[in-house]
């Protein structure tokens, strides 16, 4: 088979389909986050305070986990995470450019989690990735909302809660959904799925 620079189905290079899948999921995620999750999050955080972020953040980020599980290639997490927040911003989320910072740091966290497992499509990878994403989120919260001025105890609680919730809720949710998509016949990527959960 001839080599093809433009469209090689490689381990690293994104195919056109990869790009479109990233785009579509980021689009769905971005808009849902701007209009649905965003509204819920304000409600939850309004009622519970900043720690409430741990309850809503998993629902912001599980989209990215789905994409990485469907397109397990380096950089996909960061790209999707950023794209989703850009869409969120263009769609008019009132969180505005704050979400760009979140998108970047959370994307890095997600990327690292999958990198550790070398982009294997496994539940542990999804959970670790979610947990690191939670840390990224906590860092953003701390510096943007000025929580660094707080006592260390609540701050540590925030980090732990976010890591645990993002890892367990976001990671598992993302994995289960990606798995469902996979079962419906979309193979995607170059690696096989681990045996059933």
């Amino acid at each position: 088979m001839a080599d093809n620079a433009g469209v090689a189905v490689g381990k690293y290079r994104y195919t056109t389909l990869d790009i479109l899948i990233i785009a579509v999921v980021a689009a769905i995620g971005g808009v849902v986050n701007a209009y649905v999750t965003g509204a819920w999050a304000k409600f939850i955080e309004g009622a519970v305070g900043p720690l409430g972020a741990a309850l809503d953040n998993p629902f912001y980020i599980f989209w990215v986990i789905i994409v990485v599980l469907l397109v397990p290639k380096p950089g996909v997490a960061i790209v999707t995470s950023l794209l989703a927040v850009i869409v969120e911003m263009v769609a008019g989320s009132e969180d505005g450019s704050i979400v760009l910072v979140f998108g970047l740091l959370q994307g890095i966290g997600l990327e690292l989690g999958f990198l550790v497992f070398r982009y294997a499509r496994t539940l542990p990878a999804a959970i670790l990735s979610g947990a690191l994403c939670g840390i990224g989120c906590a860092i953003c919260l701390t510096f943007i909302f000025g929580f660094d001025k707080l006592d260390p105890l609540p701050l540590v609680a925030l980090f732990v809660a976010l890591a645990v919730c993002d890892g367990l809720i976001g990671g598992i949710l993302g994995y289960v959904i990606a798995r469902g998509v996979n079962r419906a016949g979309f193979a995607g990527g170059t690696q096989t799925w681990e045996r059933a959960v």
Binding site: I19, L20, A23, V24, A27, V31, L83
Partner: peptide
């Protein structure tokens, strides 16, 4: 190709 991801996201939103 990277920039197209953003364009495609907008392209597919109504369909979504």
């Amino acid at each position: 190709r990277a920039a197209f991801a953003f364009y495609a996201a907008l392209r597919f939103l109504p369909l979504v």
